[in-house]
Design a binder for these strands. Structure first.
Lengths: 187, 187
DNA sequence: ACCTGAACACCGTTCAAGT
DNA sequence: ACCTGAACACCGTTCAAGT
């Protein structure tokens, strides 16, 4: 069972180095010190290995979100922090972010369910924030979808170099997320 | 020179069918009725062919944006329409959208420049809209970046099925874009 | 100038076989 | 239960050669 973890680790390394095409079962086996088709004893095929990488990433992030101290911090701050953390993760691991997007197009029900849990948590935070007066009125699911879309898009634009870090606006993904909450706060 | 267009057309077909992996130089040649390495007489390699697909898409969209009637339509409406059109294109051609994002990570200066032209047009529209009172104050580049991020992220979330079309919020990408402009209008 | 056919290296996947 | 080695089909790319 130790081999399985080693395979995922090696595959993640290769993914970060050069995207999914760089992840070769032969090279994965080579780095782990095992034959080129030993991975088939742990994963159905290459795509199952890639899905495992992303599944572990989401699990890690979900735990990080849930572990957030449930003290008297305003819900709006928890929501904003979660989105900032999501964007930070995406910018720091662009290949994982892109792969997750690619896999989501044809996602299995299980994977959709995993993401759904984190998503519902964000909607709950949004509803609480509205009660606490930190966000404008409206359907919480729709408000949360707007914030999530902005965080997702801003992260991707930063990754692809489309946020002109040297222009006048000089905004990164985190800045734009904070801008949205500032607009909401003024409303 | 007709072969070149036929190759791009066949490659685009394959891309829409199953993503970049589905685009095989051998299958492209087969569909055009030409040998499996005839593409090398028109493109340096497979990635050059994929880049050509995206370049033509962006050129087509840039023309469509520029052709917009320059009548007395408020600038804020032109800006919103451009973003709605971008999201509509992404949702309608998810494989092209994903490929464009993937290529942008390691984009050539030429490709960056092409996108830069459309981008500057959006920033100009934003500045005019601010003068006309249709948008809140602030750096136009930053405001435009926010709108663009939301449009981009909302399109991707709709494509990946993360916008819960059957939930209470029941928002698609277009709805979320309109929501942002509504918030700005109230500010 | 454009195309073909053979060839090479590489990859995902399968299968029979080993411990 | 886990791994190996050979084998197969497929792909990107190169090259010599044809018109």
């Amino acid at each position: 069972v130790d081999t399985r973890d080693a395979l995922v680790a090696a595959a993640t390394e290769l993914l970060d180095e050069g995207g999914p095409e760089r992840v070769t079962l032969r090279e994965v086996g080579r780095r782990v010190g095992v034959s080129h088709n030993a991975p088939y004893k742990h994963f159905a095929d290459k795509s199952a290995l890639l899905e495992e990488i992303i599944a572990r990433e989401f699990e890690r992030m979900a735990n990080a979100t849930v572990t957030t101290p449930q003290d008297d911090t305003p819900a709006v701050d928890l929501l904003r922090d979660a989105l900032l953390e999501y964007a930070r993760w995406a910018v720091e691991h662009p290949r994982r972010f892109e792969l997750a997007n690619g896999l989501a197009i044809n996602a299995s029900p299980g994977a959709q369910e995993r993401v759904g849990l984190t998503w519902r948590r964000l909607v709950e935070l949004t509803a609480v924030a509205q009660e606490q007066g930190g966000l404008p009125a409206g359907d919480p699911e729709r408000l949360a979808a707007m914030a999530r879309s902005l965080a997702h898009g801003a992260a991707e634009l930063q990754i692809t170099g489309h946020l002109s870090p040297h222009g006048k606006g000089r905004a990164n993904a985190a800045d734009l997320i904070n801008d949205l909450f500032a607009v909401w706060h003024r409303t």
